[in-house]
Amino acid sequence: MKRHFHELSVAGTLVLLLLVLAVLAPGFFEPQPLLSRLATAAPRLVVACGVALVILTRQIDISIGSLFGVCSVAAGLVATGPTGIPGALATSMLVGAVGGAVNGTLVAGLGLPSIVVTLATMVTLREGLRLWRQGVFINLPDAMQWFGLPMMRGQAVVCLIAVGVLVALALMTRHLAAGRYLYAVGSDAEAARLAGLRPRLTTFLVFVGMGALVGAAAVMNLVQSPQVDPSTGRGLELEAIAAAVVGGVAVSGGRGSLWGVFAGFLLLSCINPALTYLGVKPYWDKASQGAIILLAVVADGWRRRRGGT
């Protein structure tokens, strides 16, 4: 109980919000728009899980929004060719993994600070993509949408993939040696090295994995509409990082769980629709978002302060 106080407090806030909605706007829980909303959110959850792993190893990646756009465009261009969905998925994940490998090489190989490296790749990728594509939409073949399934099933598949990624990563970080490495490297890279782990390789692989997840998420997003907007993914990095830290992943590395990320993600992605359902004016969006982030972290800080750690 005490160890999971943070996760529980975030989950509690979420439940509170859902209760308010249940009373004031029960329409929020109607199955169909709810499933659509979950499907829209699913790719973002995958990205948030990925960035949580990065933060666990005491790094950060702010290039994921730009990379998401690049992967979407690459997948979109390939999807119009003969290889169809598998080709698009493979391309997207490959492009993502290569992008991640570039970040990973600079961070793990050369020992450069990840926030600066990914700041640089963020602007380079974003502006490069703009130069290349000029913002023109890409039309996708019809067979691409919902993986060729009927809509509801397609939505379910997208959601299941996201939950699958979440559960797999949660179990991995909790129970597999590879998962524990992340915590070890994130808490103290030098100690991890002395214990026989390879912190640089771990960090590198985490970045590659992050990129591949971004690529997969891009395709999960792609199948939900027949056109690719090359600006897609703008601002995604902050959304994902906010979900991870609100969910209790410590930016100092080595502390946090993916269940917490899940709770943080659900809380943050509920705010905007909740405000629409409650009829709150849109100019309160950002202020509410900021207030809730602060509330979540302040509650945690306050508790730790009083706990006397």
């Binding site: 982030i293 602060l294 945690d300 800080g301």
Partner: peptide, 15 residues
Amino acid sequence: LRLPPLIVTLGTYSL
């Protein structure tokens, strides 16, 4: 509260 500056200012960035 000894909170990490990155998180605090991410919150106030929106706020």
